[in-house]
């Protein structure tokens, strides 16, 4: 990410009116199409463009052990398990390999903020295990 986009996105995030506009633009697409849950750190591209935050337990490294034989959710038997959907769609899109990726815990400070701006502003951490990170990346993690 260039310094310019990083600065611009940081500027947008700092100004509530601009941030609201950015969020609106993002939500017009993400809410109806992906039923975005506003975590502010989007992982759609890893999960067959299906949002894991729709899982009642919000499991980003799913699925839990309760998926029913018909692929439905243990909590809401009338709904499909999100991870069942993620698996089906990833298969269709040829993205199943991406499901092996470990997702770090959600940064709760980013909830209800624009994920796109957060990406441009460099606020999203690399998705990997601490021990796989370099010393420098670990340091950045601590700062954030």
């Amino acid at each position: 990410m260039s310094k310019l986009t990083e600065g611009l996105a940081g500027f947008v995030l700092k100004h509530p009116a601009l941030h609201k506009c950015a969020l609106l633009a993002e939500n017009i697409i993400k809410k109806p199409v992906f039923r975005c849950q506003d975590c502010g750190q989007c992982v759609l591209s890893y999960n067959g463009y299906t949002c894991p935050m729709r899982c009642p337990k919000q499991i980003r490294n799913g699925p839990c052990g309760g998926t029913r034989a018909n692929g439905h959710c243990e909590v809401y038997p009338e709904r499909k398990c999100i991870w069942w959907l993620i698996n089906e769609r990833s298969k269709k899109l040829g993205m199943q390999g991406k499901l092996r990726k470990y997702h770090i815990p959600v940064d709760r400070r980013l909830e209800h903020t624009s994920a796109w701006m957060n990406v441009f502003a460099g606020k999203i951490l690399p998705i990997s295990l601490h021990r796989d990170l370099t010393k420098k990346e670990l340091g950045e993690l601590k700062e954030k």
Partner: peptide, 21 residues
């Protein structure tokens, strides 16, 4: 690990994820 729940391929994948973690 739940060997009996669907979807089967994700069960194995998630086991691997846990081991890696």
């Amino acid at each position: 690990a739940n060997p009996f729940a669907e979807p089967f391929d994700l069960r194995i994948m998630r086991l691997g994820k846990k081991i890696h973690a």
